[in-house]
Amino acid sequence: MSSDIAVVAFAQTHHTGEDSGLSEVELLAPVITDVKEQTGLTRFGFTCSGSLDYLAGAPFSFVSALDAVGAWPPISESHVEMDAAWALYEAWVRLRHGDIDTALVYGFGKSSQVRRADGESGLPELMTLQLDPYYLAPLGLDQVSMAALQARAYLELGHKEDDLRAVAARSRAAGRANPYALDLPDPGDDDYEIAPLRPHDCAPVTDGAAVIVLATGDKARELCERPAWIRGADHRIEAHSLGARDLARSESAALAGEKAGVRDVEVAELHAQFSHEELILREALGLGDDVRVNPSGGPLAANPVMATGLIRVGEAAGWIHRGEAGRTLAHASYGPCLQSNLVCMMEA
């Protein structure tokens, strides 16, 4: 049993808001090469990835991705049909067994390929394919409308739309300072996308990939000057039906945070795809005004679906790698309106 497990390397693509003409595996290969060079490793004790067939428009989207890894001789490998943050969780659990000392984790997604017949992004519709197939999916919902229901519930507690705009403005400004995120202008006077959400409250369509290397104990210290030690990792899901939960709060995020041992956070990277989600998550995780939230710009500045959550871990670890923070938090989410939430606490 090994419980000293750290993030020792992270790489991500320069994310794009449109199709850059690279296939998924071509997006992925350079970032995998990058972490191999950072660590000097070419083989890993375990490999795990997160991706989504429906994003690629074909079954088994993870099969060709294996070409980017160099899976020869054969490797010990698995895949989750979830954000790659859950692949990281699986790898973290695997490393705890104690018989291996490194793991490679990656995620990738090209949301730009999801295109309605009229040329608009079909991502909001696509994301509703994960809804209850009897009572919800046939309604013709979209992801933004679902999120707007939650935003309205949150505003009913007495919050203002300006609070949402402030989140978007801060995220976009931070994104412009982040070479990997999109260059998005300050929020303008756009009409509602779906009230109360405006376009700037919604994460942009993004293509990208990200890779993380985990290592245990001495191996981690050997590979990285300042490993980001994972002190707790947990994830929790709640009811699927929106009518069965208090939408203005995130019970599952609060529970995951408690189990992961959230305390004294200096920097938090939150998987908030809509601006109100950041505010709900801050409350659920008890993050006060002194915590720097999404200094990378977060998902509102770059949202390569299936890699977005993993990027939160990489970005939060980066503060420790650079010696700029002692305790950081990464969060990932999936399911409609933050149905499931993962929290990863890291320390220097």
Binding site: D19, L22, S23, G57, S112, Q113, G122, E125
Partner: peptide, 8 residues
């Protein structure tokens, strides 16, 4: 679901 796929 509709896509515009890129060959790479």
């Amino acid at each position: 679901a509709d896509y515009r796929l890129s060959a790479g």
